[in-house]
């Protein structure tokens, strides 16, 4: 296992298509890319010929068979699991888990739920995610906010499965999965910004905002600057305290007289490379 420090490229885009990123640190989970570590059922694992960020890749080969598998459940759930070693745990200091996925199949298109990814804690609580973006012939990067896992304690086990019932009998599918790594921003940044309430009354006490914040805790102590703007008029500016991960912030509105209209909510309004925007509708009040 090694640590790699990488400086992310700063990309300059038109202001309403911002994809700029703060510098990112990665921690590769090299051992997770070893097919021998994965315990398959109703499928086979091997070393893939592909690479993911120069890392090895596991090939999960699944011949869909409605008549094979477990006697009680012939249309079953081909799956593989891996137990994380202690040195592969400790994800709470990171912002995201990432890996790459490339799919090959006898089908031209995958079903709506092509592949499930699961994460387990020691008590067996699990988070199940359907990787709906898997596409035949395409390599995708799967990203998961650590704060979205929603399972208490350390992640100790990973798994992948398909539902054979989502596929046709005799389909073949190969998932090439690798490059498992944890990522964290080295400065504070907002990677997702949206109004939790896309419409509110103008006499609401607060504006709920959903954000995903990345960055080490010491860089988050100053909070995140937010601005509410209607056309060119700045209605309100506030700096709100944040923690790492996904959260709902409540921007107090009582300091300003907010008129009904379409507003833009902006995070880091003065920092073009970190700026994020979202739209919100503020309606009149039925009780005024």
């Amino acid at each position: 296992m090694g640590y790699i420090k990488t400086i992310g490229l700063l990309l300059v885009w038109p202001i309403f298509y911002l994809c700029a990123q703060a510098p990112i640190e990665y921690r590769n989970l090299d051992g997770v890319n070893d097919p021998k570590r994965w315990g398959p059922s109703e499928c086979e694992t091997s070393v893939s010929t592909r690479k993911a960020w120069d890392q090895p890749v596991v090939r999960m080969h699944i011949p869909v068979d409605y008549h094979g598998g477990e006697k009680a459940y012939p249309i079953g759930w081909p799956r593989m699991y891996l137990n994380l070693k202690p040195e592969e745990q400790g994800w709470q200091d990171y912002d995201r888990l990432e890996f790459q996925l490339y799919t090959e199949s006898s089908r031209s298109e995958l079903p709506k739920r092509p592949l499930n990814f699961h994460l387990y804690n020691k008590q067996g609580q699990k988070k199940l995610i359907s990787i709906t973006s898997a596409t035949v012939g395409k390599c995708i990067t799967f990203t998961l906010n650590i704060s979205d896992i929603g399972v208490a304690g350390e992640i100790t086990k990973l798994g992948f499965n398909i539902n054979e019932s989502d596929y046709a009998d005799k389909d073949m599918v190969d998932f090439h999965i690798g490059g498992f790594r944890l990522a964290r921003a080295t400065v504070a940044q907002v990677t997702e910004l949206k109004p939790a309430a896309p419409a509110i009354f103008c006499d609401n006490r607060v504006l709920p905002i959903e954000v995903v914040v990345e960055g080490p805790p010491e860089k988050l102590t100053h909070g995140i600057p937010l601005q509410l703007k209607c056309d060119k008029h700045i209605a309100l500016t506030k700096t709100l305290p944040v923690i790492r991960g996904r959260q709902t912030l409540y921007m107090p509105l009582s300091d300003a007289k907010i008129e009904p209209g379409k507003y833009t909510l902006i995070a880091f309004p003065e920092e073009p490379t970190l700026r994020k925007e979202a739209t919100i509708t503020i309606t009149s009040s039925p009780w005024e």
Partner: peptide
């Protein structure tokens, strides 16, 4: 503004108060 989902259950939903705000814009 609807984040379309096959099942609206817990995640990816508007905050509770938005429903009445949208309803009010329709009523207006």
């Amino acid at each position: 503004a609807i984040e379309v989902q096959p099942k609206y259950k817990n995640d990816g939903l508007w905050e509770a108060g938005s429903f009445d705000a949208w309803r009010w814009t329709i009523a207006e």
